[in-house]
């Protein structure tokens, strides 16, 4: 593996990703993953979520450590602002997904990235969540992601990286396409 690592330009092990793609084409059942999170209410609008275990490649897997995330609302919402708002985590998820994708696609296309910076903005009319106007949706009315990329490549090649990253992005798909969501209530165990 060490030789492959030295050929990496952006630190993404593309050889391993391509190997996995080949292996999973032969064994599609191993490609079935389950992502999980747990969340505990703390106080007020403050909640703490954590992720650690997930399922993939046919067995239970773990992150190297548990990651935890505080969510809350800013003071103008009469909250204590102990963490990012949940909708900001959505932007964090989108930015992380697209940016990782750009690095991986660049690696595969042998494009050296010098810097990649994304700025995200999502519009929201909070008349929706406040129940003021039922014609206003709760969620974002649009998301813009603006990339500034310095790379040893032409403008078209950089645009193609960004386009391909969206094409292969899980979070981009989750945001742009409908998903069934089931929320159930169990007796405390």
């Amino acid at each position: 593996m060490s030789e492959e690592t030295t050929t990496c330009k952006n630190g993404v092990n593309v050889a391993a990703l391509l190997e996995a793609r080949e292996a999973l084409t032969q064994a599609p059942e191993a490609a079935q993953f389950k992502w999980r999170a747990t969340c505990n209410w703390e106080d007020g609008t403050h909640a703490r979520s954590s992720v650690e275990g997930f399922f993939g490649l046919g067995e239970e897997q773990r992150h190297r450590s548990e990651f935890s995330f505080d969510s809350d609302h800013p003071e103008i919402f009469a909250s204590e602002d102990k963490g990012a708002t949940p909708v900001e985590y959505v932007l964090v998820g989108l930015a992380g997904c697209l940016t990782a994708g750009i690095a991986a696609v660049a690696e595969n296309r042998e494009i050296k990235l010098n810097s990649v910076k994304a700025t995200l903005e999502a519009g929201m009319d909070i008349q929706g969540i406040l129940g003021i106007d039922s014609d206003v949706r709760n969620g974002f009315d649009g998301v813009t992601v603006s990339y500034e990329i310095d790379a040893d490549a032409s403008k078209e090649d950089i645009e193609a990286l960004v386009a391909q990253s969206q094409k292969r992005s899980a979070v981009f798909d989750i945001l742009t396409n409908p998903t069934n969501v089931t929320v159930e209530v169990k007796q405390p165990g």
Binding site: E156, E159, A163, Q166, K167, F172, T176, N177, P178
Partner: peptide, 18 residues
């Protein structure tokens, strides 16, 4: 319901034609 990725599929096709 339609995908919100229309701009990207158009960008991909424009780049590919280029």
């Amino acid at each position: 319901q339609f995908s919100g990725a229309l701009k990207n599929v158009c960008a991909l096709a424009d780049l590919k034609m280029g």
